[in-house]
Simulated scan of single mutants.
Amino acid sequence: MERQNPDKPGVFPQAPSQEEWDAMDEAARARVLNSLPGEVTWEEMAPPEGDRHFQAKIRALDALRGYFTRQKRRVYLAAELPVYFPAKKRFAPDLLAVLDVETHERDRWVVSAEGKGLDFVLEVHVGGDRKKDSELNVERYAQLGIPEYFVYDRARQRLFGWRLPVSGARAYMPILAQHGRYASEQLGLELQVEDGRLRFWAGHAPLLESDEFISRLEHLMAGIQLRAEEETRRAEEEAQRRQDMEHRLAEETRRREEAERRLAEVQATLERLEKNQR
């Protein structure tokens, strides 16, 4: 059977051109949006590549989402989300980022409706033909005006990056590593392959994934608990010392009062004897 050509207009769902979109009223635009599927077909995407592929993009998504949430920055992040550029073949990158937009959940990214294209794309390569990620997408994403594109080749533990040199350019320039790290101007972060995983850096601080963040919190909580227990033990020891001291003071007071009582009795006895001797 002849395979369908996804580049042919109309073979797969496609967003209208920008001119067509601009000519539509709100009702027509709503119908178009509802007609665009929130998934792509097997003919349009690479076959599944297993846990190494899945975990790499999910970890990256997790680290970035946690970081930008803590920074209170409006950065929309998604994995394998269908993207519709005007009158272009749709695609679903492993990871995408769009800056300064609302971060609510979406089923698709329609450039004309959102008013903005993608700012950052990451593809993870584990197996199969590297040409798609390292050549075809380099040309395609540049033509779409995506400012930055990175490829994490997990099979070889290597990282590659490209950037549009100026606004409006449609050809990438490679991003050169500095001390093993690749700068992302769009994210304001650095990327590096470290210890068998893709790591993002904000200055000298690594972006922690959820499990790492939780592990550090647990470690901090364990330290806080240990210090709290130590403070409690010291407080209890101090309280016991105060109690012992109060007990000793009470005992000394009792003894002094007893001695004073006996002395008073002796003095009284002596006074009686002296009185009897007169």
Score class of each variant (00 low, 15 high):
R3G: 07
Q4D: 12
K8H: 05
P9N: 02
G10R: 09
F12M: 09
P13Y: 05
S17F: 07
Q18T: 13
E19M: 15
M24K: 08
M24E: 11
D25I: 12
E26T: 12
A28F: 04
A28T: 15
R31M: 09
V32E: 07
L33R: 10
L33Y: 11
L36H: 13
V40E: 13
T41E: 15
E43Q: 15
M45H: 11
P48A: 10
D51A: 10
H53A: 03
A56S: 12
D62I: 08
A63E: 12
R65S: 05
Y67K: 12
F68Y: 08
K72W: 09
R74E: 09
L77I: 01
A78F: 00
F85T: 01
F85C: 01
P86H: 06
A87Y: 02
K88Q: 09
R90N: 05
F91D: 04
D94E: 05
V98N: 00
L99Q: 03
D100G: 04
H104L: 02
H104T: 00
E105N: 00
E105R: 00
R106T: 11
V111M: 07
V111A: 06
E114A: 11
K116V: 01
D119M: 01
H125M: 04
G127R: 06
G127V: 06
G128N: 01
G128E: 05
G128H: 00
D129I: 01
K131F: 02
L136K: 12
N137F: 10
N137G: 08
V138K: 08
I146D: 10
P147R: 03
Y149G: 07
F150Q: 06
F150K: 05
Y152G: 00
Q157H: 05
F160V: 01
G161N: 01
G168V: 03
A169Y: 04
R170Q: 11
A171R: 13
Y172F: 05
Y172T: 07
Q178T: 14
H179V: 05
G180R: 05
R181Q: 14
Q186I: 12
E190L: 09
L191C: 06
Q192C: 14
V193A: 08
E194T: 06
G196P: 06
G196M: 03
L198Q: 03
F200W: 10
A202V: 00
H204S: 08
H204T: 11
A205C: 05
S215D: 14
E218Y: 13
L220K: 10
A222P: 13
I224V: 15
Q225M: 15
L226N: 15
E229Y: 15
E229M: 15
E229V: 14
E230H: 13
R234T: 07
E237Y: 04
E237G: 11
E246Y: 13
E246L: 12
E252A: 04
E252L: 06
R256I: 10
R256L: 15
E258Q: 12
A259N: 11
A264S: 03
A264R: 14
E265K: 02
Q267H: 08
Q267V: 08
L270Y: 08
E271Y: 04
R272E: 00
